[in-house]
Write a protein that binds this DNA or RNA. Structure first.
Lengths: 167, 167
DNA sequence: ATAAACTTTCAATTATTTTTGAAAGTTTAA
DNA sequence: TTAAACTTTCAAAAATAATTGAAAGTTTAT
């Protein structure tokens, strides 16, 4: 496989994985492109490479910036804006985990807590609802917590020892 | 909040979380409904409760069974089929993690390995592609591994000590 | 102040995913 | 074997999400 084929394969695979971290295809592909680029890319570069429209590129770059994954680079003397993505995978993982947690998991945890706290009226179905949503609440909270901690910056010594324990 | 409101809130919230574990809304809602039910439910019960069509119910129940999350219960003397879901959250998490890994993460890991193994032609861009996809490969593999191990059955003693370390 | 260079916005279009419902299929009881 | 009770299938419709492109907006150089 040559460079071009490998690049296309990587970008499209990473794009299709977008759903896994809750973003759309174009957004994931732009990130992938920046991730393997040796230099900042302009909107023009991205549009041409991915064959997507200017509007689409603009909107998805904005989202990536909102996520904190992509940043604008001002190149002195250049009129255009250039973009780069976080290149360190650990840091990338940390950012993504934090954002997903904040956007999606925390709200669910809140609802689970609310629902599991309704008044027990003594009926079997209410007891079951409380029991099961409480279990889900605890699990979700623990999992969310673990992922965030595991992926967090100060992980090194901890993660390494954990990995040895687990593997 | 009374039972009915709490139930509706739980089912719809869990439904919207479907995207997080890669399934559609109806599928997640059916699972949620079964999860808090005190007894097996028939297709009829589910259709009525969620106000969805028979076809939709049938298809999504099949998918849930394919995932290994829902099972058919034959109730002696009854003509209808009844359904239940795994009630233990740990077991549920284990099944979901395994399936997602198998269906989505493993294929991506395979591509990352493939792409990161292309011949280094000495150009800067090829070196960057190899370096970055290798890093992503290692991260993805490790994360996938950890999640599966953490969530796996025989976890108890391990998880508890890990949790103490991490928290 | 003007115009060129560039970016953003958003209504309309297009693509994708989900849902429906009725026909076809299956199972069971008699 | 028949018919009632039930489930599955799948083409068509509906709902949702992504994408386009051109007009409006912004910035910068002169």
């Amino acid at each position: 496989m040559n460079y071009e084929d490998a690049k296309i394969k990587f970008v499209s695979t990473w794009g299709s994985l977008g759903s896994l971290w809750g973003i759309n295809k174009a957004m994931a592909q732009i990130q992938a492109l920046l991730f393997i680029s040796t230099k900042p890319l302009s909107m023009e570069d991205i549009m041409e490479d991915l064959k997507i429209s200017r509007g689409n590129t603009s909107m998805n770059l904005r989202q990536l910036m909102d996520w904190g994954i992509v940043t604008k680079e001002i190149i002195p003397g250049e009129r255009k804006e250039y973009f780069t993505t976080e290149k360190d995978v650990q840091e990338l993982a940390r950012t993504i985990a934090k954002e997903r947690s904040r956007r999606e998991i925390q709200p669910v945890i809140k609802v689970l807590k609310e629902v599991s706290s309704i008044k027990d009226d003594g009926t079997e179905k209410t007891k079951e609802l409380i029991k099961q949503t409480k279990a889900l609440h605890d699990l979700t909270e623990t999992a969310d917590d673990m992922i965030n901690k595991l992926v967090s910056q100060k992980q090194n010594w901890i993660t390494k020892s954990l990995l040895k324990l687990i593997k």
